[in-house]
Amino acid sequence: MANLSLCCWIFIAQGFGHRDNPLVADMNEVAQRAVALDPGDSEVVAVAALILGVSGDMETGLALVE
């Protein structure tokens, strides 16, 4: 789930689509779901923090980093 949200971000960052694109519109929800499934996995938490931070939810991203 975390890697799926990362792929969605790459889709946007590389200019293939916009955040409003239905293919990637649920990127934040996917990242949050990944953390909910395995909050003890540091790689999942790191990827989710990145995705949430760059997509506008900086407070949640920072909380995950801490």
Rank of each mutant, 00 (worst) to 15 (best):
A25Y: 14
L6Q: 02
F11C: 12
D26Y: 04
E59R: 15
S5E: 02
E43L: 14
V47S: 07
A63E: 13
G15W: 08
M58F: 12
V30E: 02
A36S: 10
A36F: 08
P39K: 02
H18G: 12
A46R: 15
L4R: 11
V35C: 06
C7L: 13
A13I: 07
Q14G: 00
D57T: 07
I12D: 01
F16C: 02
D26C: 00
L52T: 04
F16S: 00
G61E: 01
L64Y: 00
N28K: 12
A25L: 13
I10C: 11
L62G: 00
A63D: 12
L64C: 01
L62Y: 03
L50R: 14
Q14N: 05
A63P: 01
L37I: 14
G56D: 03
M58A: 10
E29G: 15
M27P: 02
A48F: 08
D57H: 10
V54S: 06
Q14C: 02
A25Q: 15
L62I: 08
E59A: 14
Q32L: 04
Q14D: 07
G53I: 05
D38C: 12
F11T: 09
V44Q: 04
G40A: 07
M58N: 09
I10M: 13
G53D: 01
C7I: 12
V24L: 05
S42E: 13
A2K: 00
H18S: 15
E59V: 13
F16A: 05
A2P: 03
H18R: 15
L50G: 02
V24W: 01
S42L: 12
S42Y: 10
E59P: 03
D38E: 14
A63Y: 12
A2W: 08
A34R: 06
A36C: 08
G53E: 01
G53R: 01
S55T: 13
G56V: 01
L6R: 10
H18N: 15
L52K: 07
I51H: 02
M1R: 08
P39N: 03
A31C: 06
V30W: 04
E43M: 11
I10K: 15
C7E: 12
G53Y: 05
G61S: 10
G56A: 00
M58D: 11
A31K: 08
F11S: 10
V35M: 08
A2C: 09
C7M: 13
V54T: 10
D57K: 11
A48V: 07
L6W: 08
N3A: 06
D41I: 05
M58Q: 13
V35S: 03
N21H: 15
L62F: 04
F16K: 09
I51M: 13
L4N: 04
L6M: 00
P39F: 02
S42I: 14
C7H: 13
D26S: 09
L6G: 00
G15D: 08
I10N: 11
L52A: 04
S42G: 01
M27A: 03
L37Y: 14
L23C: 11
D57R: 12
V44G: 04
E43H: 14
R19V: 05
A2S: 09
A2R: 00
R33W: 07
V45C: 05
E66R: 15
I51P: 06
A13N: 12
